[in-house]
């Protein structure tokens, strides 16, 4: 009872990265609160899935394995989770801010009338004093999130309703094995006893999922391009630089919107969050929604023809010049110096 729960997402038969990242966060919250960490996995053909979760410190893994839970649709997943949460009364429930989590989370929170905070960038435990009501609270979840297009950061709390629910985007938390030999127990959910015919009214007719080819999140060097790169052809220059440096290519939203790069390369508030060793920003102005996804890079090099571009404020090196001139020189002098 009153434990920390992570609602896990299954992606091609494996636990999604964002869920493992939340398991790591959930483990540290559970340690702080001196309670257990529990995972919840719903889907079909999940045999052995618990083995992926134990090393992240799962004490209990609730598994609902039923063909009606795969592919994902909102209503059956909601019914199973609401049923379980009414019995288990978690104090905290976390899920990924993916299309899955952002479809499911609000539905579950509405059914339980428990608050939900979207897109948290940090989760902490702390006290709260409600002076008006003369009440004090210990150990609340501080759900810290940007809002207002990234121009403000709000700390949201959920004093009275449980669970305290929050979604977090992929790449925001760090995934880390807690203990490779950790063992918890499995609770098999009797899905059949919960689902009703009205849960199954939405039917998936067709599905085309593309396997992600791009792996910017795990790349230690990122060459990123913005609208200032100018064209899809000029983006090839960035790919060339990335190739010689062993880097991945990222993009700003303006570059993605303009069709210079694929959506999965988008970095920022509505793309992925990255923290590479080196981030080379080419023709990117450095709007807050972009920098929110890359400002924790260890080193930032900005290439921009505007010496006052905001990106220069967070850069370690600001090269004032044309992308088309600077990038080939980076390639040239890198090659010269590593020969």
């Amino acid at each position: 009872m009153n434990n920390v729960f992570v609602i896990c997402e299954v992606d091609e038969g494996k636990i999604a990265d964002v869920s493992l990242e939340l398991m790591t966060k959930g483990r540290s919250l559970a340690n702080q609160l001196k309670c257990k960490l529990e995972a919840l996995v719903l889907g079909h053909n999940l045999k052995g899935i618990e083995k992926e979760l134990y090393p992240y410190g799962a004490d209990v893994i609730h598994i609902g394995d039923d063909e009606r839970l795969d592919p994902y649709t909102t209503l059956p997943h909601t019914s199973v989770i609401v049923d379980l949460f009414k019995k288990e009364e978690p104090q905290i429930a976390l899920l990924g801010a993916s299309t899955f989590g952002r479809d499911l989370g609000p539905r579950v929170s509405s059914a339980l009338q428990s608050g939900l905070t979207a897109d948290c960038t940090s989760l902490e435990i702390g006290p709260h004093e409600d002076k008006k009501a003369g009440k004090t609270y210990e150990n609340l979840l501080y759900q810290i999130r940007p809002a207002f297009g990234g121009n403000i950061v709000a700390t949201i709390i959920n004093p009275d309703c449980r669970p305290q629910m929050a979604t977090v985007r992929e790449g925001v938390m760090k995934k880390e094995i807690f203990d490779a030999t950790y063992k918890g127990k499995v609770n098999k959910i009797d899905v059949d006893a919960i689902l009703k015919p009205e849960d199954l009214v939405v039917k998936v007719i067709e599905r085309h999922m593309e396997k992600s080819k791009v792996n910017i999140k795990n790349s230690s060097i990122i060459v990123s391009g913005g609208y200032g790169v100018g064209s899809k052809e000029n983006f090839d220059l960035l790919f060339e630089l990335a190739e010689v440096l062993g880097a991945e290519v990222g993009a700003s939203r303006a570059a993605v919107d303009a069709g210079f790069a694929e959506h999965e390369r988008q970095i920022g508030q509505t793309g992925v969050t990255v923290r590479p060793k080196l981030y080379i920003a080419c023709g990117i102005s450095g709007q807050i929604q972009h920098t929110a996804g890359m400002e924790e890079s260890s080193m930032i090099i900005a290439i921009n023809n505007d010496p006052n571009a905001p990106i220069n404020k967070i850069a370690d090196y600001a090269i004032t010049g044309d992308v088309g001139e600077v990038v080939p020189k980076l390639i040239k002098f890198y090659k010269q110096n590593t020969k």
């Binding site: 009338q113 428990s114 608050g115 939900l116 905070t117 709260h128 501080y142 759900q143 940007p146 990234g150 121009n151 403000i152 950061v153 709000a154 700390t155 949201i156 709390i157 959920n158 004093p159 009275d160 309703c161 807050i288 900005a302 010496p307 905001p310 220069n312 404020k313 967070i314 850069a315 370690d316 090196y317 600001a318 090269i319 004032t320 010049g321 044309d322 001139e325 600077v326 020189k329 002098f333």
Partner: peptide
């Protein structure tokens, strides 16, 4: 409303010292 805003911070665009370079070889 189960969720309450405890605190709001405005994001301040901070300047950090960048080394400024030109494209010279």
């Amino acid at each position: 409303s189960p969720t309450k805003v405890k605190k709001i911070e405005n994001v301040v665009f901070q300047a950090k010292e960048a080394k400024h370079l030109t494209p010279a070889d």
